[in-house]
Simulated scan of single mutants.
Amino acid sequence: MPNDRLREALLRNGLDLSDVAVATGVDEKTVERWITKGRTPYPRHRHKVASMVRETENYLWPDALPPERRAEVAQSEVINVYPHRSAIPLDLWTRLLAHATEQIDVLVLAGLFLAEEPSFARTIKQKTRDGLKVRMLFGDPDEDEAVKRSGEERLASGTVPARIRNALALIEPLAEIDGVEIRYHRTTLYNSIFRFDDEMIVNMHVYGQPGAYAPAFHLRLLPAADLFETYTTSFEQVWTESYEADFGRKA
């Protein structure tokens, strides 16, 4: 069976058979068999190709690793676990933002704590000039999901929609910058996701507690792992169902 994931990943990154052959030290015919016949490369070759196309080995070759090995690798993806999102040091957020050079993806209901950070908008403006791509998904404050969330977090009625509107007011100027996309979603979120290149903060949502009090963990992307990929896939699914921001209507 052809490996369409590998084929698509190579095309997306502008790579051909010869590029992969040179990088891995194998014949072009071998690379072609990886694609057309679905042959599984040796581990050292999988690692190299996955790095070239910025995908995980598990995505490109789902059956390459046994379940027990996947569990071991997943543990290596976790850099740190925080009992509450508010316990994450400010300098970690600052470092992640400062070191991101290719992409930042944010999936939140409000994310007001991030929007209120003065360096956030300033750094985004600077880095997009150098090619950084930013995608931000905010909950639609007029949708039932946002209204309902106030009660689920034991907050005063209308608190979550108000926080979303405050966050939108702060990040609205970014919508005019090339390289920044801001969209709305009406998803019932189970986690907030903050991706900075190959690192990610996942803020788990806990019924009865606001996001700041819920646990969070810090992940890194590893070629042979799929924990990071799980949340990346979740972000992409919400992005697919999102819709254009209308700041005039939400103001």
Rank of each mutant, 00 (worst) to 15 (best):
L174G: 03
L222D: 03
L60I: 03
H218N: 06
M52L: 15
S51K: 15
A21L: 01
R183S: 00
A23M: 10
A100I: 05
A156R: 15
P173T: 11
A167I: 01
P173E: 10
A214E: 01
V206R: 12
D144V: 13
W61Q: 05
W61L: 06
A216T: 08
E77D: 05
R165S: 02
R46S: 00
L174F: 04
Q75F: 04
E143K: 13
R7N: 09
P118Q: 12
H218K: 03
D91M: 10
S192N: 15
E176A: 15
L17T: 02
P89W: 04
G14E: 03
K127M: 06
R46H: 03
R129T: 11
D63N: 12
E117V: 07
P210T: 04
V20D: 00
F235S: 03
T56S: 14
P173L: 11
F113P: 00
I201C: 01
R163P: 00
V81K: 04
W61T: 05
K148Y: 09
E77G: 03
D226I: 04
V202Q: 03
E55R: 15
A224D: 14
L112Y: 10
L112K: 13
S150W: 09
E117D: 13
H185A: 04
D19W: 07
V160Q: 10
R220A: 04
V202I: 14
N58S: 09
H45K: 12
E153Q: 14
